[in-house]
């Protein structure tokens, strides 16, 4: 849903970043308003996963230039945990398995960290169980997964559902979903996409990072951006994703050649 008067939640300006002294992002500009769903598409190595990690504050990435404002305030100076508490969420492409740490306890500690930031009371074990059981419905997840260690032994689909469950509990204002569709069969994809659609509201925004149109068949983006060589090459509406599906990424190479970037 596009409303030009909706508040800007995330503003990325000229963002450059590197990992291990290797420049990956070469100046990304992107503005995301409340109520919008954006999709960033691009091939492997285009920098789209790096963008998500930089926004979430992964310590392996160094920002070398540019700025990111979250609701008008500097984001890049904040620790990853602080970014999460004020409402930024990264859904991982490869959710991490943490043996010995109970999923339920992890979800409760994370939820309470966000609630404290919002000035809400901490939820005790019982109150939290009620909340989590209600939110499980968003992703049709079996409560048995709450008793297991975080993501340990979960299938690909279960891990992604667990990511969306975390999103449902943390109620972020900006959710970045990195390749949430990868490794999912069509049923799991429907459930995960359904969860994302349920959580989208006029007050929050979603940034989908994906290779494929198939996710965008289920979650309709307002804006589509094509990323290549560490920058956004072209932006458009949902039709841009369909065009990519039809023509592939070859035109991207041509545009890069014209621009003198290999």
């Amino acid at each position: 849903m596009i409303r030009s008067d909706a508040p800007v939640l995330l503003e990325i300006r000229g963002l450059k970043a590197s990992v291990e002294d290797q420049p990956i992002l070469h100046g990304v500009d992107l503005t995301i308003r409340a109520g919008e769903i954006h999709a960033v598409m691009g091939r492997n190595g285009s920098g789209k996963s790096t963008l998500s990690k930089v926004l979430a504050g992964h310590p392996a990435y160094t920002v070398t230039d540019g700025a990111v404002l979250y609701r008008g305030e500097d984001l890049l100076g904040l620790e990853p945990e602080q970014r999460a508490r004020i409402g930024l969420f990264l859904g991982f492409q490869y959710p991490v398995e943490i043996p010995g740490v109970s999923n339920l306890e992890f979800l409760r500690v994370a939820t309470n960290a966000r609630r404290a930031e919002l000035g809400h009371d901490e939820l005790d074990t019982f109150a939290f169980e009620d909340l989590v059981r209600e939110r499980l419905a968003v992703v049709q997840m079996d409560p048995a997964f709450l008793e297991r260690s975080v993501n340990e032994g979960f299938s690909g689909g279960e891990k992604k559902r667990n990511e969306i469950l975390q999103m449902a509990l943390l109620e972020p204002l900006v959710a970045i979903l990195d390749e949430t569709d990868s490794g999912l069969d069509i049923d799991a994809l429907r459930i995960v996409a359904g969860g994302v659609n349920q959580l989208a509201s006029p007050d929050n925004a979603t940034l989908l990072i994906t290779h494929y149109q198939r996710l965008l068949d289920l979650i309709t983006p307002d804006h589509v951006h094509v990323m290549a060589a560490g920058r956004i090459l072209r932006s458009g509406g949902p039709e841009l994703a369909l065009e990519l599906e039809r023509t592939g990424y070859e035109w991207v190479d041509q545009e890069l050649a014209v621009a003198g970037v290999s």
Partner: peptide, 16 residues
Amino acid sequence: FYLRSRGIAEDQAARL
């Protein structure tokens, strides 16, 4: 990083 990206402070994440 996974725990921190969910709002859990670094020292608490290490303890967990």
